[in-house]
């Protein structure tokens, strides 16, 4: 299949970016990133600068790949990361637009690669249970209701890709943060630090320059792990009750 790629090129975080067009011949069994590999091989053979993009596992779990394909973070396929997208979802003659995740808290490094370290900073504000190695009781000492465990799990499937931020017109990280918080707050082990965690993580999220959540819902639509906005609703409740608890 013959494709035209319209790709955002930006030399570094301070340079101005622009779109450039490329032609590439792909196979329908290729993954989207393999199609970009073909393009880069072509560019290198011509001694031109290959397109920088992030990737690692190429199976939808590490959260490294991050690009907006035809206007949508990770492309149009539901519940799918860019690396899992395959070219059979496109047809010969298509023009595909590829851009980086755009958000003020994700500065562009080069081309399609952006800096998402602000997501780590949110984790450091409380995305953990304070237990030193060796202090743990027996694993079966605290039974966990299988439903609680399962809903904690649903939140814990977040791969930290940041597509929710890129999808949000406000650049909010509420879906990510609420997923991180719900994972721990739904479990008995995580309850003790509950209020402190909610307050601290939200504070840091604001400090890192992420926007406010105004319930647009685009995050859930674009999230490759289909994390539900119910997490945000639950977080809002936690936040209010943590404020009333006066635990700051």
């Amino acid at each position: 299949m013959k494709l035209t790629l319209k790709i955002w090129r930006q030399k570094n975080s301070t340079a101005n970016g622009h779109f450039e067009n490329y032609q590439v011949v792909a196979d329908e069994h290729m993954s989207f990133l393999e199609m970009l590999d073909v393009l880069n091989q072509q560019l290198i053979e011509k001694k031109q600068d290959p397109v920088a993009f992030e990737h690692d596992c190429r199976e939808g779990i590490c959260g490294a790949c991050s690009m907006v394909i035809n206007g949508r973070p990770h492309g149009q396929q539901k519940g799918t990361t860019a690396c899992q997208l395959h070219m059979r979802a496109f047809k010969s003659g298509d023009t595909i637009t590829i851009e980086p995740f755009r958000a003020s808290s994700f500065p562009v490094i080069k081309d399609l690669a952006v800096d998402r370290s602000s997501l780590d900073t949110i984790m450091q504000a409380g995305g953990y249970i304070s237990v030193n190695t060796g202090q743990a009781p027996d694993g079966n000492a605290i039974p966990v209701d299988s439903e609680d465990s399962s809903s904690a799990f649903d939140a814990a499937t977040c791969i930290g890709c940041g597509a929710c931020v890129a999808a949000c017109p406000n650049g909010s990280a509420m879906l990510y943060t609420s997923a991180k918080i719900n994972h721990l707050n739904k479990l008995p082990q995580g309850k003790v630090e509950h209020n402190k965690r909610v307050q601290n993580m939200i504070k840091v999220m604001d400090k890192e320059g992420f926007g406010k959540c105004s319930n647009v819902g685009a995050c859930e639509v674009e999230c490759p792990k289909e994390i539900s906005t119910d997490n945000i609703a639950a977080l809002n409740r936690y936040y209010l009750s943590s404020v009333f608890a006066g635990n700051d």
């Binding site: 249970i129 743990a136 039974p143 465990s149 721990l184």
Partner: peptide, 22 residues
């Protein structure tokens, strides 16, 4: 065996039986 204890204490959501045990 200690690894499992540690991971559970950290909040790793291992699969559980209906009774809540691992």
């Amino acid at each position: 065996t200690e690894i499992i204890d540690q991971a559970v204490a950290q909040g790793v959501p291992f699969a559980r039986e209906y009774g809540g045990l691992l």
